[in-house]
Design a protein around this nucleic acid. Sequence first.
DNA 1: GGAACCTTTCGGTGAGCGCCGAAGTGTCCG
DNA 2: CGGACACTTCGGCGCTCACCGAAAGGTTCC
Lengths: 236, 236
Amino acid sequence: MATKDPQAPHLARLAALIADETRAACLLALLDGRAWTAGELARHAGVAASTLSEHLGKLVAGGLLTEERQGRHRYVRLADARVAQLVEDLAAQVTPATAVRPRNLRESSAGSAMARGRTCYDHLAGRLGIAVTDALTVRGLLRQDTGFALTDAGLGWFDSAGIHLERTGRRPLARACLDWTERRPHLAGVAGAALCRHALDAGWCVRIGSERAVKVTPSGERALGELLGIEAGALW
Amino acid sequence: MATKDPQAPHLARLAALIADETRAACLLALLDGRAWTAGELARHAGVAASTLSEHLGKLVAGGLLTEERQGRHRYVRLADARVAQLVEDLAAQVTPATAVRPRNLRESSAGSAMARGRTCYDHLAGRLGIAVTDALTVRGLLRQDTGFALTDAGLGWFDSAGIHLERTGRRPLARACLDWTERRPHLAGVAGAALCRHALDAGWCVRIGSERAVKVTPSGERALGELLGIEAGALW
DNA sequence: GGAACCTTTCGGTGAGCGCCGAAGTGTCCG
DNA sequence: CGGACACTTCGGCGCTCACCGAAAGGTTCC
């Protein structure tokens, strides 16, 4: 019959971009939301620079990455929030099935820093992200029982905290993103991104090293306690 | 360095399952939410039965499909709503980039029936799905401006319409699913599934042939008009 | 201009995988 | 019991693609 859905080739091509271990490692690394150079990614993935260059060509051509050339460097980042969401969703689908266990102390401590707090593209994740999401929920600022949306009180909270929510085109104000360490949804979307940016700008938390992991500062603990009633214990 | 994210191999393996055109065609066909036999899928995809058998083995082993043997038939369906969502999300990512245009009259009329109304795994999609979602929104039953969630009035509406919403484990009551013909979100999740099931049970709409497409019946037009104020014109 | 550096292009190699047809297993039905 | 049917297993073929090293193209800095 060979009817086949006309979407099938396109779907397969998109999945094929992610179906290579080296490219997958690049996409996961780029989930930190920042731009990496081709060389950094090559070292991270453990392949020759020439090999990685070809991979980047495919990912850019496929629309998953955007590039920005600066001098002799090629900076590359995830194309947009939709791509980030896609990679997150795929990663979340995979984690429950085959639990990722650390094999040595180094991985273990790096893993626990990631589990404590990290960025997930442009919003907060890990126990930190969950703590914030839960605090918003119990205070009636975020509604999770019938879906996932900010309440009117929630809009007011962002306003009074001085965090501006730009109602841009298609991106939803609030969206659930499945946390792959906590296995529960945390806040993403415009509000999640704005909150994360504010947290970094205001020094509530800082990045650890050059990875995705973040840690809460003393002033951040104070701010989260005052604004959301989060106790320091919830962040460990 | 060869550090690499430990998730990378798993992510790549999952994507590889979808990265084959024949398997992608199967997954898209199975988006109708029903169980297909191996033979049906082989004919649909245009490959030998032996080839398809191997594909099904991989998809089942990978957790994307579940199988149910009945006599000499092997029935197979999407494993759960999460898998369906994943396939939908990938398909939605692909469609905007390369617009799928019908090439002949047959595809075109089949396409327009699909565009008018169809099921998307277990909920309504196409102009029908959008019309329902919009009607819920303008009546204050569904909130889309700050996320995507039913309102308290919305819970009451479902109750008074006699549609029971089972608050099961992890699945959200309401979730946005991007419609790939309308390019806008429609209602998915527990509420979307319950509404679709009720619409089929109550004869509001019926399936066309053996595909995903559905059409609204005269009694369905009446019911949608009375319960949600949807005019018949919005369904064409 | 020359040296160091990042990236890209190119040829060649090897492994993986989708495909088929033929043969085998199991089920249903007359 | 025997034939039709649905599916699976197996061997073999051919293509795709990730990988590398060597060489070339640009950029920056001295």
